[in-house]
């Protein structure tokens, strides 16, 4: 379905809606049983959901729009810290019944602030491309980390502790489904064709009356918003945030998911996010070798299936 975007847009959009419903229903049903699931597995499943949101939102920037961002962890940090701070301050004043509302508000606030940061990065991206853009986004992510590291209000280097545990399977996968839906619907709309046009050939796109500037900024802002949401979920899942968790290796992890899944292919990216979250856990038995195996896998996969693991029929498009 998703790999045939270009030829069957209406079907694909209907498909996306169906996925949204399936996703949300599944999330609600599974969360009913979450009490029975072993906490370790529960934790990993939530990790998977958060990584899906991160990978799908980065895919909008790096895949569909053909930009190259290495700062996704920075947006995640903005969203995570904002949401965590809000619920830490407000939650003691609210009765239990209102806590889910607070969580929603905190997530949205985190997402919005991250989107604002995305705007800040999107604007320089108008003048930069390729490696220059990569380094600027990387730098942006590092600046966020350094600022957080020095902010006493959010715990500075010692981190923010005692964040209420709001994140559940339902929240995570409901939001993951919404993320997938929004990104898919956006790219498949008439408006959204512009993303792919910008990614395919910016000059040709602008000569066809498409304004690349607007598309790039939209991609950055939307992508950052969902990264911020993912950050909020992460904060209320781990219940502890420290600046070192948002360094550039975290961004690299997300980039690898997008590339393994296939740039611009949402379904592939989702599967890649699932596999890459599970992989380190499966390899845990080989603890001292697992990161060696992980890095080897990246190399081998790039050689064997550079177009992404899950691309079957679409003609290979130059990704850079």
């Amino acid at each position: 379905m998703l790999s045939t975007f270009h030829s069957q847009s209406p079907t694909a959009l209907a498909g996306a809606k169906r996925w949204l419903i399936v996703g949300i229903v599944l999330a609600v049903v599974v969360s009913m049983f979450s009490a029975q699931i072993n906490r370790y597995y529960l934790g990993i499943i939530v990790d998977i959901g958060i990584n899906i949101i991160l990978a799908v939102s980065l895919n909008l920037i790096n895949g569909h729009t053909g930009q190259f961002s290495l700062g996704h962890a920075g947006f995640m940090a903005v969203g995570g810290y904002t949401a965590a701070k809000i619920s830490l301050v407000v939650s003691p004043m609210l009765p239990p019944a209102l806590q889910p509302l607070l969580f929603l508000f905190a997530l949205l606030a985190g997402g919005s602030l991250a989107a604002l940061a995305g705007l800040g990065v999107g604007v320089p991206s108008l003048r930069l491309r390729g490696d220059y853009l990569a380094i600027v986004t990387l730098g942006f992510g590092e600046i966020i980390r350094v600022v957080v590291q020095n902010m006493e209000a959010v715990g500075a280097a010692s981190g923010l502790k005692g964040i209420p545990k709001y994140t559940t399977l339902g929240w995570t996968f409901g939001l993951a489904a919404i993320t997938i839906y929004v990104v898919t619907a956006l790219v498949n709309s008439t408006y959204g064709r512009g993303f792919i046009a910008v990614s395919d050939d910016e000059v040709a796109a602008s000569s066809m009356g498409i304004n690349p500037v607007r598309y790039k900024v939209t991609a950055f802002v939307t992508g950052a918003f969902f990264a911020g949401i993912a950050g909020g979920l992460y904060a209320h899942h781990k219940q502890f945030l420290s600046p070192t968790g948002f360094d550039f290796l975290k961004s690299i992890d997300i980039v690898v998911m997008v590339i393994l899944g296939g740039m611009g292919r949402t379904a592939g990216v989702v599967v890649a996010a699932i596999l890459l979250t599970l992989l380190p856990e499966v390899l845990r038995q080989f603890s001292e070798y697992r990161m060696i195996i992980y890095s080897l896998l990246i190399i081998v996969l790039m050689m064997a299936r550079p177009q992404g693991l899950f691309t079957w029929n679409r003609k290979q498009k130059g990704a850079a």
Binding site: F68, I259, E288, Y294, S295, I299, M302, A319, A320
Partner: peptide
């Protein structure tokens, strides 16, 4: 070399993979 004709991003990710591989291998006792 096997990736020479591939998109540059592929090579970049491979380079990150190589970098991680060297780092983690060398950290092994």
């Amino acid at each position: 070399r096997p990736l020479r004709q591939r998109p540059r991003l592929t090579v970049l990710i491979t380079a990150i993979g190589v970098s991680l591989f060297i780092e983690f291998t060398c950290q092994h006792k």
